[in-house]
Design a protein around this nucleic acid. Sequence first.
DNA 1: AAGTGGTCTAGACCACGCC
DNA 2: GCGTGGTCTAGACCACTTA
Lengths: 259, 259
Amino acid sequence: MYRKIAADLRDKIKSGELPPGSLLPTQQELSRKYEVARMTTRQAIAELINEGLVVAQQGRGVTVRDRQQMVYRPQDGWEAPTSPTIDRFTAAFTRHGRNPSMEIDVSVVQADDFVAERLGVEPRSQVVARRRVISLDGTPFHINDTYYPYELVRDTEIMSPADIPGGSNYVLAERGYRERYAIDEFFIRMPTPEEIGRLRLNPGTPVAMHVVTGFTAREEPVRCDIFILPGDRHVIMYERVHPIDDEGRPVSTPRGGQS
Amino acid sequence: MYRKIAADLRDKIKSGELPPGSLLPTQQELSRKYEVARMTTRQAIAELINEGLVVAQQGRGVTVRDRQQMVYRPQDGWEAPTSPTIDRFTAAFTRHGRNPSMEIDVSVVQADDFVAERLGVEPRSQVVARRRVISLDGTPFHINDTYYPYELVRDTEIMSPADIPGGSNYVLAERGYRERYAIDEFFIRMPTPEEIGRLRLNPGTPVAMHVVTGFTAREEPVRCDIFILPGDRHVIMYERVHPIDDEGRPVSTPRGGQS
DNA sequence: AAGTGGTCTAGACCACGCC
DNA sequence: GCGTGGTCTAGACCACTTA
């Protein structure tokens, strides 16, 4: 029964009969209409909440969710190739008049297993953690925690909780650790209670955990960057070029030829 | 109260006291221990289910979930650069003795708004849909639906529901539509009921929707590929190379220089 | 103050897995 | 057949928003 109620409501949302921002019928109304107990209608609504379709607020009611997504481009700052087409794609998600802000917190911590494995250091050895929450118009958009091997960044401006002109890669390059390539990993999962708090997430919002591990040309790890991207606020976008030309012949790549 | 029960169980799972595959205390036991009604313990367990931590099965009990993830590499087949390091990364997620299988279904359908926008055709115009479900050892791993403009693929082997030797890009290239570059989009969300059915997903499993739109050098779209990747079964991995060399000078890119 | 959703109770019966 | 989780009822009181 609760599945039928949920399906009916889902259909009304998808068809546009209940547009984003509108209020669903109250739980009491649904109970009367379907002749069920309120706990049953609550279960139907819980299903929609967990699907990320609606949000419930005490005293207000249940409203249909609206997605406001921004484009997240891992290749930004890499002087990546850009085509007119990708601008057309990103335009669909771009909003204007945004007011960005950032919270920064730098500390020396013990590396957990996950970070230690990526930085090639012993678990629980000291690393520098640079933790940031990036907000737009006052609402948190994503978490960006960066971990560096302690010896690489001690006594640099990376240790100070302020914006770094030119980026931290510039600082590392000056010390002889120029990042040459990086590996991106994405894990799709539900947020931890800590992440829900830091990002003020609604129930039913999954996140992408984007892990960037940067290496020098000598294969030494120089940084491990962890982004937590709420699914309702981001579209992740990449651009790729085939390493063969229009006649099917190989084109030289930055790392010098085909593998 | 139900939050406390959920937090206690979550701690026991994270600490390893309740390892993957083990059974949680039954709802009746929890009700006795915490002196609450069974509906309250059910709510605690519902929370853990929606976090993707546990699965409930009628007649069996509630078990701690185990993740078996495979590596998903969008760059595969692109002759992408490969370093020894990425092999080390992928090794952590690779399982052996896997038995892959595929279901294919090809049909001519009306493009929805999403696909029409990406293929640059009118909404509801005819496109060819090639729908696949890829399974490993009998369990579905991901959905791969590919859409082509009808005129580009009519009377080709893309229309037949069988494996294509060399891939569909090879067939398109022969007809003068060689894919030169592609744009990747990732949307993170909860699965639709249809996706839950096709992939036999457990509750609390988010998915990544990976959309690849391929273009010729003349900026004509040739395909729109939609992958549905369950979060508990995939790690998405990219490798990127900085377009500058160790002295900081630009390196030529496949598309010919910096932007 | 009225109305909304949030939590909780103490029962009931059903569907399923396992012995 | 027994015990598990799945569904549902008919109440109760609380916390919060809005007017």
